[in-house]
Nucleic acid binder design. Structure first.
Lengths: 341, 341
DNA sequence: ATTGGCACTCACGAAAGCGGAGTGCCAACG
DNA sequence: CGTTGGCACTCCGCTTTCGTGAGTGCCAAT
């Protein structure tokens, strides 16, 4: 792929096809884009592009359509992610303004993202693993029943009920609360777990060892609960209409994937940090049935330390530059908000 | 509508149409159901039923299809909600077993309901308004910054950050925590709000009045936050495929409604208590565009005091008896679980 | 390397023909 | 009077045919 004009032709084909949803022919191409050559010349280029697998024709004597490989080249070499306009930026801020808690922030993000891109938006909740412990609260529900509340820096709250073998009194509750918070407070989850184990170890001789152990175990379990790492918010399902007709071949499999959060997370892949946007086009993904689907994702988190991913899922035939810009912008804003909190 | 056989014919038409998705003719009817009369006789009955608006034909010389009115009569007079089999009951229990917190319980319920009915399931989170305050926790994030955590009997947790005009010390924190819990603990939300206002009133002379006021206001605001009353969980969207072809006329409007939780809740209507299942058929609902959609709902909550609704949304052409049974069963199990907690 | 010319291909839409399921009506029957 | 067999009629849905036109591939000329 050396020829300069051929690349221009490919770009033109992608842009036209995305805009019109119809196979694009040589004549229309020279008219709509100002490449100063004749249709016949373009046809030669097209033949070459087809030879190399970047475009294809649905049937003989139809216009050309980009292949996955064609889109790939397009995003890799022919795209510059355009920054958002100031108007758009303002819209984003005002949209995110006034969020009260983590749930709310995430909800607003999905909604925003799906509205900006007109695709289905997915936002993964921040992982436990990289957040820090803000506070641990113990509430006595009954003499042998304790509510353990784990509050994290991202605003996430995990709560568990733990049954004790011996009754607990007020004084002991205060002591235990103190020691647990002293051990875990402010630490990253992984470190907090270590400190908690140490604390339990130290307490193993004391009379209240069993109670301490029970509470610590509950906390450790809550901290390592990957079930909650798999929480995601999905929005903009209405945009599935953009897949056009093909309900069975494209929309249904996608609906199924969106419901299986495990599948969905696998589809989104690893969160990439540093403002890098990942694009996975059609059959490049792990699922056969989603060969007509592309995924555009990036990571987010305070100071670009990727806590989780966020992105959109849409038809391979989509406006990649615009979508990538939107995904990146929302990730930035979300990161900033988590930073402030 | 007196004639006994006519009702039987209507029932047969509904059942066949639901099963086959095709207009049903007189001949097929007498064959598949054992009504001991000739097709010609059935035709007369059909003409009468059509006259009265219970059935209609898509076009001349086609079979008959039930109208909304026909379905209505069917569910009102021709249906006995069949109880779940013991196998199904067992499946339900095992499905709900091991839920750890409220979110988990609700998630499992939607999933269960959508699998049982093969429709889109909707579960509203328990309202704040009827639950009681289990505990209020205050955590000092900074000298003038407090995290207020409100823990409710249903397992719901609301949290807010409040900025104070004066710094707070440890001793005062303990005192405030004590007085707030003394006032609100164990009370129903509405009563808790009254008690809290009283407490703030009493404290108005003390030096820490402003702090108390700030915390109480935050709590009151959290308690009256109807935004969170509008939380719902949706599942089983894949079953939208059951609407058959018509993506634009049926599926898309529904997808839009499912995203707008306010709309969705209006669609579900008031929660009905006491094991009563509400069925809203097609155009009976408040939304024009959902005229091909039926909603089957009921309320749930401890001791049948309806805390919120739950139900399914599907095509008017659905298996009403089975669906109603499933909705009722899930509501019962969900209620029981909330009762235990 | 680029271009105009030209024959060829093939999806798509309209028009036409056909088969069959289902109806409505009527006259006959118990 | 309700029920039944017979019969003509309607009209959807499927298939076939045909024409049109956008688009292509190839070739000879520049």
């Amino acid at each position: 792929m050396q020829n300069e004009r051929r690349l221009a032709v490919l770009r033109a084909i992608v842009e036209d096809y995305v805009a019109t949803e119809e196979p694009v022919g040589s004549k229309a191409l020279v008219e709509r884009h100002g490449l100063g050559v004749s249709p016949a010349t373009v046809r030669n280029d097209m033949a070459a592009l087809e030879e190399e697998g970047y475009i294809a024709q649905p049937h003989t004597s139809a216009g050309r359509v980009p292949t996955d490989k064609g889109y790939r080249l397009f995003v890799d070499r022919l795209t510059t992610v355009k920054p958002m306009s100031t108007a758009e930026k303002r819209a984003i801020s005002s949209f995110m303004e006034g969020a009260v808690d983590l749930d709310d922030v995430v909800q607003r993000s999905v909604r925003l993202l799906s509205q900006l891109t007109r695709h289905v938006a997915v936002v993964q909740y921040p992982t436990l693993s990289r957040s820090t412990v803000r506070h641990v609260e113990l509430v006595a529900l009954a003499p042998t029943r304790l509510l353990v509340v784990l509050i994290l820096s991202t605003g996430r709250v995990e709560q568990r009920v733990v049954e004790l073998s011996v009754a607990i009194d007020d004084e002991m509750l205060v002591r235990l609360r103190g020691s647990v918070n002293a051990a875990a407070g402010g630490e990253v989850i992984a470190d907090a777990a270590i400190r908690l184990r140490e604390a339990a170890e130290r307490a193993s001789d004391l009379p209240d060892a069993s109670t301490t152990a029970a509470v610590v175990n509950t906390l450790l379990e809550a901290m390592s609960d990957h079930r909650s790492d798999q929480r995601v918010a999905v929005g903009g399902t209405r945009n599935l209409a953009r897949f056009g007709d093909s309900f069975d071949t494209a929309v249904r499999p996608l609906l199924e994937a969106l419901e299986e959060h495990v599948v969905l997370l696998k589809l989104m892949g690893e969160a990439t940090a540093g403002g890098l946007v990942t694009v996975r086009i059609g059959a490049e993904g792990p699922y056969e049935e989603l060969s007509r689907t592309s995924v555009v994702t990036t990571g987010y988190g305070p100071s670009d330390d990727a806590l989780a991913s966020l992105g959109i899922v849409g038809p391979t035939r989509m406006d990649y530059p615009g979508t990538m810009a939107a995904v990146r912008a929302v990730a930035r804003y979300l990161s900033r908000i988590l930073d402030e909190a």
